[in-house]
Design a protein around this nucleic acid. Structure first.
Length: 561
RNA sequence: UGGGGCGUCGCCAAGCGGUAAGGCACCGGGUUUUGAUCCCGGCAUUCGUAGGUUCGAUCCCUGCCGCCCCAGCCA
């Protein structure tokens, strides 16, 4: 008992509040919601919110609705709702019987707006956008009342009806809440709650000419769904008084509590949908699902697993301070998941030929490799071994430093699961300095890689048979930006800080033949290189399999150099 | 210069008046046919800062400093 208690991660402040409301009897069940606007793809920042909202439901036996906040038809699209549903499902969460839409509540919202007018708490305003800005005042000076603020209830009702019917031009009239133009909180200076938009909505078509604004819609949607805790990000803190005003003024039977937490930022990337859209539209990336994008679809294609993302969200926690998490934390989560689940294979990324002089010319032997070093249940596979092989170009050095324990003049190394080989000579192109081939002899007694006499061979390198190897293409992905915070300097366009080497295509890589059996999306570790997955969008190109590098292995050798 | 927030180890983050959890990173050491994994050990006399209250403060109060958000008919 005590052990499980102390080993558990302490509850974050939001879960503490919810646990308190449940134990005090304020609520019998928690109801949360994940409310994306269908105007872009979900990214890792949304995953934090999804894991929080759906996580709370799972942990407390509560409910979490998936609700599309679709109140702005000019920016939204059905394609986005489809991708969002797919991503939430992929992450491992279940929204139950139905998906909710703010647009489902348009009728109800309209009725409530009429009620607001009848309570003399809303009015139709004809100020132009420019005038509206002037009347709003500034951060330090109060605004002034709109000249239309004291229209009669009857006239407001009539004009709002006319707005709905489409009698007015877009931008000419709005419905405003009547609160306080002198409020130090700008959100309370008679905020607009309905505007005219002559756009076709992806669900309601041309049924409406007026659309409710976020502040008015969100709290009422929460209320209508019986949400108990409405969790959102910090920038909405100033909106909370308005959220509460609407519910109080309308005297709604249910009043959800809005609680804010800080949004996720990661080093070497940007998180706003607007900027991601900009990269997509400007062709800086191949699309929303480009493996370098921190969108869920990009991460999925990169080879990240749902569990790794859920674990990431759990380890960063929920708080209220502005933060920027190192990309290394995310990478660590996928490494630890894949270390356990991904089978191992060998693939030479940048090949250089090795010829084993004393090996029979036409012999091809089969050697046995473990699919996982720590998990025998993953089984074994056989690997063809032949006279000519490929090894990694950087696994040979003409003048190796002391600590380098790979191949070099007079050195012996182990070809993993193969044989121990001894360097004999090498051939190089004198003009370019490129190593053309390396000659070795093998110890026939060392099959499998063990030294018959127990001699110590420090280096073990991977290899692929030249005769049986499978040519593949590899996308080597790296961080998208050159700097930790691409948005830090306001004078520099974030697009100018893109990392030009974020994608390097290796078209001469050679993999062991068993890779031919892989299916798109399969995760694999190429020993000594990293984790890769067979691309899902274009698994083959020019007849060759295409692998995406998810993340490198930790490399303490590379680090000490 | 108005209002709303935030400030605990390099990065996150517990702590809720009784004398600084944990993770990542980092540094040592061990095992290892992946320089991977795994294992062991180290890593804040100090909680933005200055005062105050208290037997006792990271936790309460006050001032100061720093950072973030707000003037869309976006969400």
């Amino acid at each position: 008992m005590e052990n499980t208690e102390t080993e558990k991660r302490p509850l974050d402040f939001i879960r503490q509040i919810i646990a308190g409301d449940l134990s005090s009897g304020k609520h019998e069940q928690s109801v949360t919601r994940f409310p994306p606007e269908p105007n872009g793809f979900l990214h890792i920042g949304h995953a934090k919110s999804i894991c929080l909202n759906f996580g709370v439901a799972v942990e407390n036996g509560g409910i979490c609705n998936l609700r599309f906040d679709d109140t702005n038809p000019s920016k939204e699209d059905i394609a986005y709702v489809d991708s969002i549903k797919e991503d939430v499902k992929w992450l491992g969460f279940d929204w139950g019987k139905q998906v909710h839409y703010a647009s489902d509540y348009f009728d109800k919202l309209y009725e409530l707006a009429i009620l607001l007018i009848k309570k003399n708490k809303a009015f139709v305003c004809e100020l132009s956008p420019e005038q509206m800005r002037e009347y709003r005042g500034t951060l330090t000076t109060p605004g002034k009342d709109s000249p239309y603020r004291n229209r009669s209830v009857a006239e407001n009702l009539e004009m709002f009806e006319a707005m709905k019917k489409g009698d007015f031009a877009e931008g000419s009239h709005v419905l405003r809440a009547k609160i306080d133009m002198a409020s130090p909180n700008l959100n309370l200076r008679d905020p607009i709650i309905y505007r005219i938009l002559k756009a076709t909505h992806h669900r309601t078509g041309d049924q409406w000419q007026i659309y409710p604004m976020y502040d008015y819609t969100h709290c009422l949607s929460d209320m209508l769904e019986g949400v108990t805790h409405s969790l959102c990000t910090l920038e909405f803190q100033d909106h909370r008084p308005l959220y509460n005003w609407v519910l109080e003024t309308l005297e709604t039977p249910c009043h959800p509590r809005q609680i804010e937490f800080s949004r996720l930022n990661l080093t070497y990337t940007v998180m706003s949908k607007r900027k991601l859209l900009q990269m997509v539209e400007g062709n800086y990336v191949s699309g929303w699902d480009d493996p370098r994008m921190l969108t869920l679809s990009g991460l999925r294609r990169r080879g990240y697993t749902p569990a790794s993302i859920r674990n990431f969200c759990a380890t960063i926690g929920i708080g209220k301070s502005d933060s920027r998490i190192s990309m290394g934390v995310l990478e660590n989560e996928i490494r630890s998941d894949l270390n356990v689940h991904a089978e191992r294979r060998m693939c030479v990324l940048d090949p250089v030929k090795v010829i084993i002089d004393n090996y029979p010319d036409d012999l091809i032997e089969e050697v046995v490799g473990k699919n996982h070093p720590q998990n025998p249940d993953k089984g074994v596979r056989s690997l063809p071994f032949s006279k000519e092989l490929y090894i990694e170009r950087n696994d040979f050095m003409e003048e190796p430093p002391k600590k380098y324990h790979r191949l070099g003049p007079d050195r012996e190394v182990r070809l993993r699961y193969g044989y121990l080989v001894q360097y004999v000579s090498h051939v190089k192109d004198e003009s370019s300095g490129e190593i053309l081939e390396i000659h070795c002899t093998y110890d026939p007694e060392s099959k499998g890689g063990s030294a018959p006499d127990g001699r110590k061979v420090k280096g073990t390198i991977h290899w692929v048979s030249a005769a049986k190897g499978l040519p593949v293409t590899i996308n080597m992905y790296d961080r998208l930006f050159k700097v930790e915070d691409p948005e830090a300097d306001k004078d520099i366009d974030f697009l100018d800080q893109l990392n030009p080497d974020s994608q390097v295509v290796l078209s001469h890589a050679i993999a062991e033949p068993s890779l031919a059996e892989m299916k798109p999306g399969d995760n694999i570790q190429f020993e000594r290189q990293g984790y890769f997955c067979l691309d899902t969008v274009a698994p083959t190109k020019d007849g060759k399999l295409v692998f995406n590098r998810t993340v490198t292995l930790r490399d303490s050798w590379e680090k000490r150099k």
